[in-house]
C-alpha cells in the first residue's frame, strides 16, 4: 500500500520536473524572434552597451544551444544541460554563471523562510489549539483576532508597513540588505548578530501573516479532536488540563497540521520571494527581481526552474515522511 502511494507521488514529482523543464524550454522559443539576440538587444538599448563583447556572447549561446539544430535535438540538449545543472551565463553580470548566482542566493532564502515558518508554526499552532480549547483563558480570543485578520494579507504588504515603521519612522532596524555593508561575513558572533538584525523585519512580515493561517487550521483540528473518546478517558482519569491539552489534544491534531505544510509550500515560497524584494534581501526573490529589471533572461529561467524543482522535491520528501509518522494518512488516501 505504501509502495503504491510512493509510486504515485514519485510519478507526479517526475511529471512536475518534465513540465517545468519543458515550459522553460518552450516559452522562449514560442515567442517570435531569436531569443538570445532579442534579449541582448533589449539589454543594450537599456544599458547603453556596457555589457562587454556582445557578438561573442551571441556566438557562444548559438553554439551552446545549437539553435540551428532541429527542435527535438535542442530539447534533448537542453535536458542534458539541466541534468548537469548547467544553467548558462548571467547576461547582466557576465561572466557570472547562473548556477553560481543561484547558489549564492539560496541559503538566504532557505534561512529566512525556514526560521520564519518554524517560529510561526510553533506560535500559530499553539494559539489555534488554545482558541478551540473550552477551558482556555478568554483573552486568547482577543489576542488572536489581529493575527487572524493579518493572515488574509499578502506577506509583502505587511513588509512594506513594517519597513516604514521599523526602519524609517523609528530607525531601529536596517532598511535593507542581508548583513551590514561594512562587514566581511565570517563565522563569528558579530556576523550572526548582524545577519539576525537584518533578517528581523523580513522574517516578521512572514511570521505575522503565517501565525493566523496556522492558528485557523489548528483550531479546526482541535475542535474535531475534542469529541474523541480518548479525551474523555483522559479527563476521567483526572489528568491535569495542561496535560490533556498538550499530550492528548494537540499531539493528535498536530500531524494533519503538518500535512498542510506541504500543501502551502508553494504559497510560502512565493510569499517570501516578494518580501525579499521589499527588503532588498539577498535571496532568490531579490535576485529574480534584479534579473527581471535587467532583463537577465537566463537568470530568470534558472531561478524559476530551480524554485519549481526544489518545491516539488521538498513536497515529495514531505509526502514520503507523513505516512511514516502518521499511519492514518496512508489509510485515508488509498
Amino acid at each position: 500500500m505504501y509502495l503504491d502511494y510512493v509510486i504515485r507521488r514519485f510519478s507526479i514529482t517526475l511529471l512536475v520536473f518534465v513540465l517545468a523543464v519543458s515550459i522553460n524550454f518552450a516559452l522562449p522559443r514560442l515567442t517570435p524572434g531569436d531569443p538570445v539576440e532579442q534579449q541582448l538587444n533589449q539589454l543594450i538599448s537599456t544599458s547603453s552597451g556596457s555589457i562587454g563583447d556582445v557578438k561573442a556572447i551571441v556566438e557562444s549561446y548559438r553554439a551552446r544551444f545549437g539553435l540551428d539544430q532541429p527542435v527535438w535535438r535542442q530539447y534533448l540538449d537542453y535536458w542534458g544541460m539541466v541534468l548537469r545543472l548547467d544553467l548558462g551565463f548571467s547576461l547582466a553580470n557576465y561572466p557570472e554563471r547562473v548556477g553560481e548566482s543561484i547558489a549564492a542566493a539560496m541559503p538566504w532564502t532557505l534561512g529566512l523562510l525556514g526560521m520564519a515558518t518554524l517560529l510561526s508554526f510553533a506560535v500559530g499552532t499553539l494559539m489555534g489549539g488554545m482558541l478551540a480549547w473550552p477551558r482556555a483563558p478568554r483573552w486568547i480570543g482577543w489576542f488572536a483576532a489581529p493575527f487572524l485578520v493579518l493572515s488574509a494579507i499578502p506577506y509583502f504588504l505587511i513588509g512594506v508597513v513594517l519597513l516604514f515603521v521599523g526602519a524609517i519612522v523609528y530607525r531601529i532596524f536596517p532598511a535593507g540588505g542581508g548583513f551590514p555593508f561594512d562587514m566581511t561575513p565570517g563565522f563569528d558572533g558579530a556576523t550572526i548578530l548582524g545577519i539576525a538584525w537584518h533578517a528581523t523585519l523580513p522574517a516578521l512580515s512572514i511570521i505575522l501573516a503565517q501565525i493566523g493561517a496556522w492558528a485557523i487550521g489548528m483550531r479546526g483540528m482541535i475542535v474535531s479532536v475534542l469529541g474523541e473518546d480518548y479525551i474523555m478517558l483522559a479527563e476521567a482519569k483526572g489528568l491535569s488540563q495542561r496535560r490533556i491539552f498538550l499530550w492528548y489534544a494537540v499531539r493528535n491534531a498536530l500531524l494533519p497540521q503538518l500535512t498542510k505544510l506541504a500543501l502551502t509550500l508553494g504559497h510560502l515560497v512565493s510569499g517570501a520571494i516578494l518580501v525579499e524584494v521589499i527588503f532588498s534581501y539577498p535571496g532568490m526573490g531579490y535576485r529574480l527581481y534584479q534579473a527581471i529589471q535587467s532583463k537577465d533572461f537566463f537568470v530568470i529561467q534558472g531561478i524559476v526552474l530551480i524554485l519549481s524543482m526544489s518545491i516539488a522535491l521538498t513536497m515529495f520528501i514531505l509526502d514520503l515522511l507523513y505516512p511514516l509518522i502518521d499511519p492514518r494518512i496512508t489509510n485515508k488516501r488509498s
Partner: peptide, 12 residues
C-alpha cells in the same frame, strides 16, 4: 498545484 504559479507566471 506542485509548480508554484508565480514561477510560471514570471516566465510567461
Amino acid at each position: 498545484m506542485t509548480i508554484p504559479s508565480v514561477a510560471i507566471l514570471v516566465l510567461v
